[in-house]
Simulated assay, not measured.
Amino acid sequence: MNNSLIKTVDRTISFSVIIPNKHRLTLLRRAVKSVLKQSYNKFEIIIIDDSSEDEFSSIVNEMGQHEKIKIVRGSGEGAAKARLMGYMKASFPYIAFLDSDDYWGKDKLLYHANAYSLYPEIVACFDLLLLIKDGKQQKVVYPPINYVRGETVLVSMAHVHKELLKDNFIHASAGSFKKYVLGDDFSPKSPNDYLTWLRLSARGSFGVIGCIMTTRTDQPDSLTWNKKILFEESVNIFKEKFLLINTHNILNKYTRMKFLFFSIFILVTFYFAIPPKVKKIILGKSKANKSSFLRIL
């Protein structure tokens, strides 16, 4: 525990930690354990589970009695919708996401609480992320904005927003934010984490914690590995970025054109990658789920 931080942090800051899960009981145990071991204990855990009935029952029996844990049956629509369900049920004013295959360092929430104490004006903050693939350390994901190793710094709204419009560099499990800033505008059509950071960056400055507090482990059975869901989210991200670019007039004409052509390339790539059945839905050749898909457009 960092005693110097624990003495200065605002103890009224409390977090709702939202963990989407599907068929990952072993990994979920690790994720939950990393939260329960936090040196800063002002939090609740909300697990949104899309597993089978048997595994859901196991999770309830194993974790449901803990006073800090809420377990909710998911809708089966992927991690983004699971986060939305958790967001709606959150009791505390600060939101933090944690994917069930990721885990935190023991001082993660302490550093985030300290960031909000140091800079009350920030709307969100994030820490550095360590990527592990196939059991081997791959790299540390560094943001394309100014940060100081081992310290927490403030980054202006204009700077972080401009960089996020280019690409997402904040993993869901690495960030946290003030719930009231978004309110009911938590990406209601597609609550993707990238859209969340984009909208937050249009409303205030961010805190950047120059410490590795989050470990990400890539899993092939990701809740967002569904190609139809990925395509839907790509469409929504494209629309949101295009709207923000034109509304705020942040990027020059050349950069806008680069963004437009790159986004079209990504959408076309996803389109040709998705299964024929989903293509039929997109093209209107199948009535199945057509109305639900068109709602995102």
Score class of each variant (00 low, 15 high):
residue 5 L to T: 07
residue 6 I to R: 15
residue 6 I to V: 07
residue 9 V to R: 00
residue 10 D to S: 03
residue 11 R to K: 15
residue 14 S to K: 12
residue 15 F to T: 11
residue 21 N to K: 02
residue 26 T to F: 05
residue 27 L to I: 00
residue 30 R to K: 15
residue 31 A to T: 11
residue 32 V to P: 03
residue 32 V to N: 10
residue 35 V to N: 12
residue 37 K to C: 11
residue 43 F to N: 15
residue 47 I to E: 14
residue 49 D to E: 13
residue 51 S to H: 10
residue 53 E to R: 15
residue 54 D to Y: 03
residue 57 S to N: 15
residue 60 V to E: 15
residue 66 H to E: 13
residue 66 H to C: 09
residue 66 H to K: 14
residue 69 I to A: 14
residue 73 R to V: 01
residue 75 S to Q: 12
residue 80 A to W: 15
residue 83 R to N: 06
residue 83 R to D: 00
residue 87 Y to N: 05
residue 89 K to N: 12
residue 89 K to G: 08
residue 95 I to T: 11
residue 97 F to T: 02
residue 104 W to K: 09
residue 104 W to D: 04
residue 105 G to T: 06
residue 106 K to H: 06
residue 108 K to P: 01
residue 111 Y to C: 14
residue 112 H to E: 04
residue 117 S to N: 03
residue 119 Y to C: 00
residue 120 P to E: 00
residue 122 I to K: 00
residue 122 I to N: 09
residue 123 V to L: 00
residue 124 A to I: 07
residue 125 C to G: 03
residue 131 L to T: 05
residue 132 I to S: 07
residue 133 K to N: 11
residue 136 K to F: 09
residue 137 Q to S: 09
residue 137 Q to M: 07
residue 139 K to N: 04
residue 140 V to F: 01
residue 143 P to Y: 00
residue 147 Y to A: 07
residue 147 Y to P: 03
residue 148 V to P: 04
residue 149 R to N: 15
residue 149 R to P: 02
residue 150 G to S: 03
residue 151 E to F: 02
residue 152 T to W: 01
residue 156 S to D: 13
residue 158 A to S: 05
residue 158 A to V: 01
residue 159 H to V: 13
residue 161 H to S: 09
residue 162 K to R: 11
residue 162 K to M: 06
residue 168 N to R: 08
residue 170 I to F: 07
residue 177 F to Q: 06
residue 178 K to G: 02
residue 180 Y to R: 09
residue 182 L to N: 02
residue 183 G to F: 13
residue 184 D to W: 13
residue 188 P to A: 07
residue 193 D to Y: 09
residue 193 D to L: 00
residue 193 D to V: 14
residue 194 Y to L: 10
residue 194 Y to D: 05
residue 195 L to I: 14
residue 198 L to R: 08
residue 199 R to F: 14
residue 200 L to Y: 10
residue 201 S to H: 01
residue 205 S to K: 04
residue 208 V to G: 11
residue 209 I to R: 03
residue 211 C to F: 02
residue 212 I to M: 08
residue 213 M to C: 02
residue 213 M to R: 03
residue 214 T to F: 03
residue 215 T to V: 11
residue 220 P to S: 08
residue 220 P to K: 13
residue 221 D to C: 07
residue 221 D to M: 06
residue 221 D to F: 10
residue 222 S to H: 10
residue 223 L to G: 10
residue 223 L to H: 02
residue 224 T to C: 12
residue 227 K to C: 03
residue 227 K to Q: 07
residue 233 E to H: 12
residue 234 S to G: 13
residue 235 V to N: 08
residue 236 N to P: 01
residue 238 F to Q: 05
residue 240 E to L: 00
residue 241 K to S: 14
residue 242 F to D: 15
residue 244 L to A: 06
residue 246 N to A: 03
residue 246 N to F: 07
residue 248 H to C: 02
residue 249 N to V: 01
residue 253 K to C: 06
residue 254 Y to G: 05
residue 256 R to P: 01
residue 257 M to T: 13
residue 258 K to T: 10
residue 258 K to V: 10
residue 260 L to T: 05
residue 260 L to E: 06
residue 261 F to L: 12
residue 262 F to R: 15
residue 266 I to N: 14
residue 266 I to F: 05
residue 267 L to N: 10
residue 268 V to R: 13
residue 273 A to W: 05
residue 274 I to M: 14
residue 275 P to R: 11
residue 277 K to H: 09
residue 277 K to T: 14
residue 282 I to V: 12
residue 286 S to T: 06
residue 289 N to P: 04
residue 291 S to R: 15
residue 291 S to V: 10
residue 292 S to P: 01
residue 293 F to K: 08
